[in-house]
Design a binder for these strands. Structure first.
Ligand SMILES: [Mn+2]
Ligand SMILES: [Mn+2]
Ligand SMILES: [Zn+2]
Ligand SMILES: [Zn+2]
Lengths: 144, 144
DNA sequence: TTTTTAAATGCTATCCATTTGCATTTAGAC
DNA sequence: GTCTAAATGCAAATGGATAGCATTTAAAAA
């Protein structure tokens, strides 16, 4: 995708095939992936890429706000997705790890308030809801 | 503290000296601590306690909502604090790891909305702001 | 109080996501 | 084409967190 090269240019990152590959995979998957997920998908696409390169690329992208992350509380893994222009928040199922994206941010005003109250220079925030998706609620209640 | 024994009783956890010790330390520190922080503080207090016991106790407490956690994005460690009755959100400094507690929750209504919209049974949420505290802003700008 | 038993603990080894060191390759400036 | 800093591969290391198992202990039962 040509757009991706622009992103890299804008971010002052060299346009390497691996970076473009990571962007491709994230784009077509359009969902959160762990570093290892990306590694496996890259292999399927032929690519000869090392896991540490994946980590390094993802670190670059996070720093440049090309990619955003969430932390899976149970598996302790970090998951990565293309940063939506309008950043999103999430419903995360504690059982099956399903992630639902919420559009819009309900706390912009609040962020402003606390930022000035505490003279804190806020760079970003996380707002994630943990619980059980519809499917897993049923499984869960049938277990009990 | 006598109150702590009640907490353990209510949580159906045996009242062991180690659990009471962990509660003591968390109470007097009144701040987030990593498992290792707790381990060191316990040692200072004489106590002969193993790190894995600390982890196991903290797991118990989290499950029973006696303790709540936040994840440090940079160090990847989990930090623990006594659960406030009114759960709190945080300003976390990306440079010095300082944590400022925010009182009150600005998203109760929003949580209701998305919970019913997506039929998602929300158990808890995280809302944390990452950025730079007043001190670190100054350091940072002087570096550049 | 003494007995009994499941829960809690200490110690050690282990796991596993992520990071790092270093030699080699490569993108992009000149 | 040359040159140089950035990017990469590979392997080893790191480090927070877990798990296994023998031993101790809280607290229920007798
Ligand atoms: Mn937001
Ligand atoms: Mn809240
Ligand atoms: Zn689920
Ligand atoms: Zn700071």
């Amino acid at each position: 995708m040509e757009k991706f090269k622009d992103w890299l240019t804008e971010a002052n990152l060299k346009k390497t095939k691996h970076r473009l590959l990571v962007l491709d995979i994230l784009y077509e998957t359009n969902d959160f992936l762990s570093a290892d997920d990306l590694f496996l998908k890259a292999k399927h696409k032929d690519a000869n890429i090392s896991l540490s390169t994946i980590y390094r690329i993802l670190d670059n992208f996070v720093e440049k706000n090309i990619v955003s992350t969430i932390n899976m509380e149970n598996t302790k893994q970090v998951y990565y997705e293309l940063a939506h222009q309008e950043h999103s928040h999430h419903l995360i199922c504690l059982n099956c790890n399903k992630v639902i994206h919420l559009k819009g941010c309900p706390i912009k005003a609040y962020e402003e308030t606390v930022s000035s109250k505490y003279r804190f220079n806020i760079e970003r925030h996380t707002l994630d809801f943990y619980g059980y998706c519809e499917k897993c609620q049923n499984k869960k209640s049938s277990k009990v």
